[in-house]
Write a protein that binds this DNA or RNA. Structure first.
Lengths: 222, 222
DNA sequence: ACCTGAACACCGTTCAAGT
DNA sequence: ACCTGAACACCGTTCAAGT
């Protein structure tokens, strides 16, 4: 046949780090974090399971590279620091990026001093500077904003893991019932209230509200 | 000898869930998250590696129980919701708890809807109610505070993993240098500035500052 | 009823052997 | 120089066999 060795396990070209990272992102996006193994990656790249170690240090490094790749290009697409609203645009852009790549939320929260998170810090910090946040509180404000993003990211990643069919409200109530007794309490009234609101809840709006709280607090101290 | 079967691998009493959770916390505190395996746990409890499955559902469940145990008793020790400053006391108490048990930071960030985090939500929410935060923004404020805690927790857990001897400032600068080029940038000036401040940096103070920003933002909307 | 520990089905990572 | 894939040293989890 003319299609010769279709799918045969032989490299046509030498591997490269960007090629490996790209393949990793594809697996992560399509099948989730658990599906990324050096064996699945090797299969997709038609190579041996140990071949990638020439180009990436280890699995942690690979995940950090994948995260930085996505965050880096999302940030590159943003207009330069200028108007007062720029910080909000950056925060929402990153929130949306995590929404599109749920594994990214878990990854950012796991290692807050990886490259991807530093890129976020840089972007946030520069825009705070541009909008006149005093140097004395700039690091505090940036860190509150980044923590808010990482916290929301983790929460979103966790939501994505709730078995389909079970509503988030029902899930929360079940967990709450399970744990309230151990806390030596009859009930968790506030959590119950939250669970009720969760049905028609907009994560993105709540995230934006948190950003506004922090910015308002910062403005009060200007 | 009279000390008979010292250290012999035989159960003296039947296992229980609290006993298992307690042993898990001891391993986590003493040797870190990686050291907790069902085999190390079995060795410490002088039993078989599969025995714990009668009492805990799996490893995730065990970690969630361990986290909830610590958070639950920390919260039980707090005075009831009352004064305006109570919310600050709770947040700092939890920050300190994570400082004492670094693995807890990673665990809370990993699964934000586990029992331990719901207990935090409850405590924060009740105190916001007590201090008069309007119902309309209460959930938003609580979630911003919890995100701040989880974000800080993750960051602290990551700091603890930086190889001893390497300062945090040097570590951050190295990571930044490594990634700035890939972001298509010469440098990351804000991150560089941060790294400089990091030498005499007080995490606890910065965390408290973030809490104040959020509360100030909330007060402005009262 | 509960514990025991071998066995199973995976991992990440290494490294001799190939090309 | 780089790839290949068996091998190593682990995991979490299951389950027949014991008591």
């Amino acid at each position: 046949v003319s299609t010769s060795e279709e799918g045969a396990a032989r490299r046509r070209k030498s591997l490269s780090e960007p090629e490996i990272v790209r393949a990793a992102i594809e697996i992560l996006d399509a099948e989730g974090a658990d599906a990324l193994t050096f064996r699945s990656l090797a299969a997709r790249l038609s190579t041996g399971s140990g071949a990638m170690y020439r180009h990436v240090s280890n699995k942690d490094g690979l995940l950090e590279s994948a995260a930085a790749e996505l965050v880096g290009s999302a940030i590159a697409g943003m207009p330069p620091a200028a108007a007062d609203s720029a910080i909000r645009a950056v925060m929402l852009e990153l929130f949306d990026l995590i929404h599109t790549h749920p594994w990214l939320g878990a990854q950012l929260a796991r290692a807050p001093w990886q490259g991807a998170v530093l890129l976020v810090f840089e972007e946030v910090g520069e825009r705070l500077t541009a909008m006149g946040t005093p140097a004395g509180i700039r690091f505090d404000v940036a860190s509150a904003l980044v923590h808010h993003l990482l916290g929301a990211a983790g929460q979103y990643a966790a939501s994505a893991r709730i078995p389909a069919g079970v509503g988030r409200a029902a899930f929360l109530k079940a967990v709450a019932a399970n744990w309230s007794s151990r806390a030596g309490r009859e009930q968790l009234p506030f959590v119950h209230e939250i669970a009720g609101e969760l049905a028609d809840h907009d994560d993105r709006r709540q995230f934006a509200a948190g950003v506004e709280l922090i910015l308002a607090g910062a403005a009060g101290r200007r």
